[in-house]
Amino acid sequence: MSAVEKNAEYEELKKKIWCPPFDARFPNQNQTRNCWQNYVDYFRCQKIKGEDYAPCEYFKKVYTHLCPGFWVEQWDDQRENGVFPGKI
């Protein structure tokens, strides 16, 4: 495989992975609020714009990359039971 092909393959592979970009609201080591805010924003966005509104999916992408799975499960349960503390 030539260097050019290798490079092209590498670029293709890079497209498959993703990392949340820098968010100026959360410049610190502590990313708790970043995860939380994106979770709240996702459901708020869906509530306001409707469930099929594609741009909302960005928030979901960010929170699924940041939040631990067991946090999301817990918050999902809380939303279902109507005891979620955030404003959605």
Partner: peptide
Amino acid sequence: LDEQSNSGIVLKST
């Protein structure tokens, strides 16, 4: 040491 990356991948460890 405090620089945060915005590229690459995420690994969550609990």
